[in-house]
Structure formats: C-alpha cells, structure tokens
C-alpha cells in the first residue's frame, strides 16, 4: 500500500502541513537533504499559489514507482479562477519579477516531471514528480 496524503490548503497552516508531509515521505523514500529541501520548496510554492489565487484547494502527496524507480508525486488541485495564459506563467521572469517567489518555472526546475492543466473559471491542476536517483 502506497503512502498517500491529502492536505487542504486554506491557510498558511495548511502550507506548513503539506511541507511536513512531503518532507516526511521524501525522507522515508530515501531522498538526501538537498532533494528533501527541493521537494518541500516545490510543495510550498504550489500550496502558496492555491492559498493566494484560489483561496481553497488541496495538495496530495504520494509515492510513485515506475520501472523500478521510486519518487514523490505532488498533485495540487484547486477550483479557483484558472490560468488564462499558461505559456506566460511558465515563462521565466513573468511571475518572479513581481516578487512572487519561484513561480511555476521554479517548481518545474525543482522537480523532474511537471504537468499543468487549467480551465478558466474551473480551476487548475498541477502534477509534479521527483525521482530518486
């Protein structure tokens, strides 16, 4: 049975709880301290985005395995306003110039796999995986 955690994000407490869950799982899987910090930073950014732009949403954290590799998968789901121009938010310097932190390009860099789906007025779903080397 694979570990799976759901954390509701409607306050900064939720962000901390999601980080904690992510770090715990990453450590258990065997990630080193640098990768643990990267994974938690990615969780932070995704959770903050939910908190800031969608008010409410969820972070799911689970272990994944694929062709013998193990990894941590983060799924961030919200029912917020959605993102109008995905290409722009994935552009370096677009969100960060406003002082919003690492932004989605940062999350993509911290993790190995990254996928985003968004629908206007319906919400956004982001999946990111870090594989253990």
């Amino acid at each position: 049975m694979q570990v799976q955690t759901h954390v509701d994000i409607h306050s900064e407490w939720g962000i901390v709880a999601a980080r904690q869950a992510g770090r715990k799982l990453a450590r258990e899987i065997g990630f080193g301290s640098v990768d643990q910090a990267r994974i938690t930073t990615a969780i932070s950014e995704l959770a903050r985005n939910i908190y800031l732009y969608a008010n409410k949403g969820q972070i799911q954290i689970e272990e994944v395995t694929s062709s013998g590799k193990r990894g941590v998968k983060i799924i961030a789901v919200d029912e917020g306003p959605g993102i109008k121009d995905l290409r722009r938010v994935m552009e370096d310097g677009f969100t960060t110039s406003g002082g919003l932190g690492a932004g989605l390009p940062g999350v993509k860099r911290l993790m190995d796999d990254f996928n985003i789906d968004s629908e206007l007025d319906a919400g956004t779903s982001i999946t990111a995986i870090k594989w253990l080397r």
């Binding site: 640098v34 990267r38 938690t40 930073t41 690492a102 911290l110």
Partner: peptide
C-alpha cells in the same frame, strides 16, 4: 539549505 534553494532558483 532552505534559504539557498531560493538563491539557486534565482
């Protein structure tokens, strides 16, 4: 380490 992640991204 946590702080440096931010610098690394920048």
């Amino acid at each position: 380490l946590e702080v440096m992640i931010g610098y690394g991204l920048a």
